[in-house]
Design a protein around this nucleic acid. Structure first.
Lengths: 155, 155
DNA sequence: GCTGAAATCATCCGAACGGATGACGACAGA
DNA sequence: TCTGTCGTCATCCGTTCGGATGATTTCAGC
């Protein structure tokens, strides 16, 4: 829209400039003489130029917004890099650490392995996962993974 | 493209028609008298009309090809209905029953619940899942779900 | 009729998991 | 400074899971 608009403005300015140039030209080449020698042609020419400009303007105005928008729905495999849904996470009151544990659970790691990965004790992992399950309202890790996927918490 | 083209044709025809009508009108209302009474205004008017039309035409001609085709690529989740990958299943030697159990595991059910769902004992379910894990080369149900998804064994 | 695959059920054991609860330090915000 | 949240660790207990092993039945295919 902006492009089209500024393009029309450009065009109007162009015609104005052309008009100016023509007038200047007339001044240069014995305007007075010319006008007196061919008054009808002069007026006719000016009229022609002016109304051509008007025509252009009117025509464009009516044809404006004829930007044909084709919405082509392309089916693409949705492999957007996955930005974890922070909103959903916060809505459920899940802390970043808990979310981290959820991700590792989804990878199929045991609590022990998660603990090793994060350099914390297995007990800590269990605490986190317990609270996580509470907040997600699930009772098993597979359910957590499933629900996490639905909520956009997991890829 | 077709629309725009035929629209321009329509417009040209419209102007032609208007011109025709005007001429007819002049004929009707004492054309001769009118022309002789106001010759300059007549010519001026005709010129104005004509060049307005010319302007419209020229303007449209230059602005033509402005059928901006916006290809809006809509990202759609590729949820093809999921036909369980029989090939992968057979390649791994996974029996239909085992696959059935895999699906229920992926739903987050416990072995007991799966047994109830399938009207078999929990022990049976355990046997199936054990053999399933063997064949899938995993050691935990979450891993089985994850791998099953990769292999197209799960939605 | 024998063979093999598939499905069923069982038992035993150790590991993993889930739930409940308590405690402590760090740190942000009122 | 007090409070609340977060992250950490622990213990206890009961459940679930996974692995190993053995047994029975059914049924299709040779």
């Amino acid at each position: 829209m902006l492009t089209l608009h500024s393009r029309r403005v450009k065009r109007i300015l162009l015609y104005a400039a052309i008009g100016g140039v023509l007038i200047a030209l007339l001044r240069l080449i014995e305007y007075e003489h010319f006008v007196h020698a061919y008054p009808a042609e002069m007026y006719g020419g000016l009229l022609a130029i002016f109304f051509t400009a008007v025509g252009v303007y009117v025509g464009l105005r009516w044809m404006r917004a004829k930007e044909v928008v084709v919405i082509r729905e392309v089916r693409v495999r949705d492999d957007s890099p996955f930005a974890a849904n922070e909103t959903a996470r916060k809505d459920l009151g899940i802390t970043p650490r808990e979310h981290e544990i959820l991700v590792l659970i989804a990878e199929g790691l045991s609590n022990r392995e998660i603990g090793e990965r994060l350099f914390v004790s297995e007990n800590t992992v269990k605490t986190h996962s317990s609270r996580l399950f509470d907040k997600m309202d699930v009772g098993r890790r597979v359910q957590a993974v499933q629900k996490g996927r639905e909520l956009g918490l997991l890829p």
